[in-house]
Computed example of a mutant assay.
Amino acid sequence: MHVILRVVRNRRWFDGVVLSAALLAAGCAAERAPATDLGADIDQVAATLVEQPLLHSASIGVVYRDREFIRHRGDMETGKPGPPSDATLYEIGSLSKTLAGTLMAHAVLERRVGLDDDVRMYLQGDYPNLQYKGEPIRIRHLLSHTGGLPNMLPERANTVLADFTDPRTPGELNAIYAGYGKADFFRDLHAVQIRQAPGKDYAYSSTGTELVAHVLETVYGSGYESLLRGFFRDSAAMTGLGIRLDDAQAARLAVGYHSDNPVPTTPMPQLPWGASGNVKATVPEMVKYLRFQLAGGPVVTESHRTLVQFDPEFSIGYFWNIVSGDRLKGVYYAHHGGVPRSQCYIYIIPKYDLGVFVITNQSGDQTARAMETAIDSLVERIAARENATGQGVSR
């Protein structure tokens, strides 16, 4: 689940925290001059990131022109030496949505689902409410956050999330979702009111992503987590993805901090399907995902296809935010993920054959901006190196 409010910024990019305009002061001079190798650059960026207030640790995975880099910095818990590692399982929040979008792109290419299908084709029972003046919510509307559905079901979760940094938020979310299953979701879905024509206005919706998971279960006759594991195992050699963890996996789950609370908080509660924000993965697994995205192929190409263009610089594909016109990055694909104790970003930047995944075990109103600045710093270093030498990098 993406539990953070959508950031509008100038072009309505990214769903995320309402951020301040503060920049990272340390390291700005270093951004202007390329270091000896990209590994050193990533070390510097990671070190600068964990120097930010409240940030305890950070992990960065990079794929650049077929080379892989992973760096971990900081300590997971205050006062307890112990950095994250390649074995650390992270909650990747709403990056989970891009995985669901990829699975739906695969289903569309296999002609199991049509983008213009009325979502009610895949629901049992009568849902006359899932339309506006005769125009139904279609599959493409779920994928592009234009269906007019609420962010979360049950609706009271949205009230809690309206003040995300309130110290009571994690506990209140846990109480809301304790025992909240698929039957509860469909009960609440019957009560949803669509107040605008689908397909026009962006309204971020984890509810829509959970519906996507249900559609996939219906057309494939298999549970969503099984579909997730099977597809990415076969297509990207990702063997460590999971939604529900066994005891051994749970022991490797990263601790994390909510806002300015000095005490670690609880994991994100389980949602009915988990497609909107319950996926867990290690950084090496996410590096495989970066490779999969950069390699292209029919499914990735379809998932990156624009479904709705909101303005000349911002579009959305199969849950991917598509940003155009950026002087430094060119056209790129990105998504933010956030839960009460973790935030992350993924960027796919074809201009440099570059993929970046950054995650930290703290979730507050400054966290996303700090990560964005770190990524911008890294891209600037890569651009400077390419402009200066036109050559690759060493590990």
Rank of each mutant, 00 (worst) to 15 (best):
157 A>R: 04
93 G>C: 07
183 A>K: 14
107 A>Q: 06
72 H>D: 10
277 G>M: 02
124 Q>N: 15
152 M>K: 02
146 T>C: 09
148 G>F: 12
301 T>N: 15
165 T>R: 03
183 A>P: 00
19 L>P: 00
20 S>N: 15
74 G>W: 09
346 I>D: 07
177 Y>F: 15
166 D>M: 01
302 E>K: 14
282 T>F: 05
41 D>L: 05
1 M>A: 11
247 D>M: 04
280 K>C: 13
50 V>W: 05
35 A>H: 11
258 H>M: 09
291 R>E: 13
102 T>H: 00
2 H>V: 06
154 P>G: 10
71 R>Y: 09
193 Q>N: 13
286 M>C: 05
185 F>K: 07
384 A>C: 03
108 V>S: 06
235 S>Y: 06
354 L>T: 12
127 Y>H: 13
368 A>N: 05
347 Y>D: 13
59 S>P: 10
85 S>L: 03
109 L>M: 10
264 P>A: 07
124 Q>Y: 02
276 S>W: 00
213 A>K: 07
367 T>G: 04
71 R>M: 04
2 H>T: 13
106 H>F: 02
32 R>E: 14
338 G>C: 13
15 D>T: 11
191 A>E: 15
95 L>D: 04
54 L>H: 12
78 T>R: 15
180 Y>P: 07
252 R>K: 15
389 T>I: 01
118 D>Y: 10
191 A>G: 02
238 M>Q: 12
242 G>N: 07
272 P>D: 05
313 E>A: 14
91 E>P: 09
305 R>Y: 08
103 L>C: 01
332 Y>L: 04
324 S>E: 14
136 P>M: 11
216 L>V: 10
167 P>N: 09
